Simulated assay, not measured.
Amino acid sequence: MRLYRYLTGPDDASFCHRVSAALNQGWSLYEAPTLTYDPEAKRVICGQAIVKEVEGKDYSPDLDLSRQ
């Protein structure tokens, strides 16, 4: 099965660590990251799509994607 996640968060080291952790758990980057500005919080928000192939399992909407 192929899984998809979209990570978002402030453009800071913690976001980069979340993406790095996912890459080290077998996820792959999917296309380019996105950026937008939150004028209320006065900060940049990042987004990065990631995908992962998981053998031997079937997709279910009940899956906890953060644990795959």
Rank of each mutant, 00 (worst) to 15 (best):
G56V: 00
W27S: 06
A21T: 08
F15C: 06
S14E: 11
S28A: 11
A49M: 08
V51I: 05
Y37N: 01
G56W: 00
S20T: 10
A13S: 15
A22H: 12
Y37W: 01
I50K: 03
I50P: 02
V44K: 00
T36Q: 12
E31N: 12
M1T: 05
A49H: 00
E31K: 15
K42L: 06
Y4D: 11
R2S: 13
W27N: 03
Q68R: 10
R2K: 13
G26W: 01
R18Q: 08
P10V: 10
D38F: 09
L65T: 04
E31A: 10
P33R: 04
E40K: 15
Q68C: 10
L7S: 13
R43T: 04
A49Y: 01
E31I: 10
T34Y: 00
G47E: 01
F15N: 09
N24D: 04
D12K: 14
L23W: 03
Y4P: 06
D38V: 11
K42Y: 03
E31M: 12
M1K: 02
S60C: 02
A13K: 15
Y30Q: 05
E31R: 15
R67D: 01
L23D: 03
Q68N: 13
E53T: 06
D58A: 12
Y30H: 08
R2H: 13
R18G: 07
R2A: 13
E53A: 05
V54N: 02
W27H: 02
T36I: 13
A21V: 06
Y59C: 01
L3A: 11
D62Y: 14
A49K: 01
R5E: 14
E53K: 01
P33N: 02
N24F: 13
F15M: 05
K57M: 11
A13G: 15
D38M: 07
N24E: 06
L3P: 09
V51M: 05
A22E: 04
I45E: 00
S14Q: 12
S60I: 04
L7Y: 13
G56L: 02
Y6I: 08
S60V: 04
V51D: 00
G26L: 00
A22R: 15
S60E: 02
A22M: 09
Y37M: 05
L3N: 08
P61E: 07
D58I: 10
G26R: 03
D64C: 08
R43Q: 06
D12C: 09
E40I: 15
D58W: 10
D64S: 08
Y59I: 03
V44D: 04
Y4V: 07
S20L: 09
V19Q: 07
D11Y: 11
R5W: 15
